[in-house]
Amino acid sequence: MKALSFLIVPLVLSSINCFASEANPITQIDKLLKRHVDEKRKSANLAGLGAIVIQDSKIIGLSVSGERKKGDGVLVSQKDLWHIGSITKSFTATMIARLIEKGDLKWDTSIKDVFPDEKNIHSEWNDVTLGNLLAHTSGATRNFSLLVSLKNPNAGSERMAARESAVRNILSQRPEATPGGTFVYSNVGYTIAGVIAENKAGASWENLIRKEVFSPLGIKSGGFGAPKDIEGKLSQPWGHKKLFGFTKSGKDDNTPIIGPAGTIHLSLNDLALYADEHLQGIQGRSSFLKRESFQRLHHPNLNSYAYGWVIGPPEELGVGTAHWHNGSNTMWYALLVILPDINAAIAITSNDGNFKVAEYSAWEIVKRLAKPLEIAHKKSMSSGAVKSAGY
């Protein structure tokens, strides 16, 4: 594993042409990012917006704009925590890959391997594997019932029991789609995968994420649920969503039962640290997991979905393949994009659940940074070639 170094040297940027002509264009990206984050946040009327850019394992841009709670005047900060929604899925798949390398699980561990004598499980679930669950081809329905979504069990054994009970209820019924042959994006499927990990490792999903992902990567800000606001003093951002034409702010989140599908929060710096480890892993330069594990995590299956990653952007960026995922709990939005061909990654977060607007703004920022990052990468590669040749 490799720690990120911090490099931000803001300079004035007048145009992409000027950017391309600079001897060291990478130093321009922070200024470019600041402009786009502020412009997009204002034009989209989002409560808050943040973004971070890494290239060559360096943070070369970090910017935030807006308020922790809309209308209260307390500004978001670069150290704030952000709910990342379904980006959590890649964390769950990464944790499972760690357990597989330890021998606790296998990619083809099946439902019947975990519950071999359970008579209440429908037979069509028996051969569904972890790989099916992580690729959304298990046949599981998209979401749990309203009754499950209203539950808020305490962390630890109570939450583990509630999670397994919700999963067993799903498994007692016929899968919604034919397992293995149909793509159905499913928070339920990832929760089942989380329960399998809990069952085999003897620890809660939350503790497994702490032990297998947060701790070894040095992620110190990681937690679960909406970021805690100490004593209601706006020490952290609140989430926002539109309700009957009005903006509602609060600290609500989805039920922790679906934690494996989408309840992690962390800082932009730590999200960049996580992204960089996957970037290095894709390129075979990480010791966090074996190369074949990273290849499995990032290999596309049906609908271009890997294990917690979509391979290929919704729009052509012109800088090679993109590995990405977004997420929202209806009050927050986040997007994480890895660009292996230019050795870069971009994370964008918002405490505003106006999904379509936040999503559009996030991808616009990515599109505007893609070419400058490609220019910076080419300059870096050219400079590296000159140095290696001894000139």
Score class of each variant (00 low, 15 high):
L4C: 08
F6Y: 15
V9M: 05
L11Y: 08
L13E: 13
I16Y: 08
I16F: 10
F19L: 15
F19S: 12
F19H: 15
A20C: 12
S21T: 11
E22A: 14
N24C: 05
I26R: 08
I26D: 06
Q28G: 15
D30G: 14
D30R: 01
R35E: 13
E39H: 00
S43L: 01
S43G: 01
A44P: 00
N45E: 14
N45P: 01
G48I: 09
G48H: 09
A51C: 12
V53N: 05
D56Y: 11
D56R: 08
K58L: 08
S63P: 03
V64N: 02
S65N: 07
K69M: 12
S77V: 02
I84G: 03
G85Y: 03
G85F: 05
K89Q: 12
S90L: 04
F91D: 06
A93W: 03
K102Q: 15
D104M: 07
W107S: 07
I111K: 02
E118R: 14
K119Q: 13
K119G: 02
K119E: 14
I121Y: 05
H122S: 11
L130Q: 06
L130V: 07
L134P: 01
A135K: 15
H136G: 06
H136Y: 12
T141N: 02
N143F: 11
N152M: 12
E158F: 11
M160V: 13
A161G: 04
A162N: 09
S172C: 02
Q173G: 02
P175G: 07
E176A: 14
G181H: 11
T182I: 14
F183K: 02
F183L: 04
V184L: 14
N187F: 02
N187W: 01
G189T: 08
A193T: 06
A197Q: 07
W205S: 11
N207M: 11
L208Q: 11
K211P: 00
E212V: 02
E212M: 06
S221G: 10
G222P: 01
G222H: 04
P227L: 04
K228L: 14
D229R: 05
D229F: 10
H240V: 05
H240S: 11
H240T: 09
K241P: 00
K242L: 14
L243G: 00
F244G: 02
K248A: 12
T255D: 03
P256V: 09
I258N: 07
I258C: 03
I264Y: 08
L268M: 15
L273G: 11
E277C: 07
H278F: 13
Q280W: 01
G281H: 04
I282T: 01
S286W: 05
L289F: 03
K290Y: 05
F294V: 04
F294L: 02
L297T: 09
H299T: 15
N301I: 06
L302K: 15
Y305N: 05
Y307L: 15
P313C: 09
G318V: 09
G320C: 10
A322M: 04
N326A: 09
Y333H: 15
L335I: 08
L336S: 14
I342H: 08
A345P: 02
I346W: 00
F355W: 12
F355V: 13
K356Q: 13
K356E: 13
V357E: 14
A358H: 04
Y360T: 14
S361P: 00
A362C: 07
A362E: 09
I365Y: 00
I365M: 00
K367P: 01
R368A: 06
R368G: 05
K371Y: 15
I375P: 03
K378P: 00
S382M: 10
S383I: 03
A385N: 10
K387H: 04
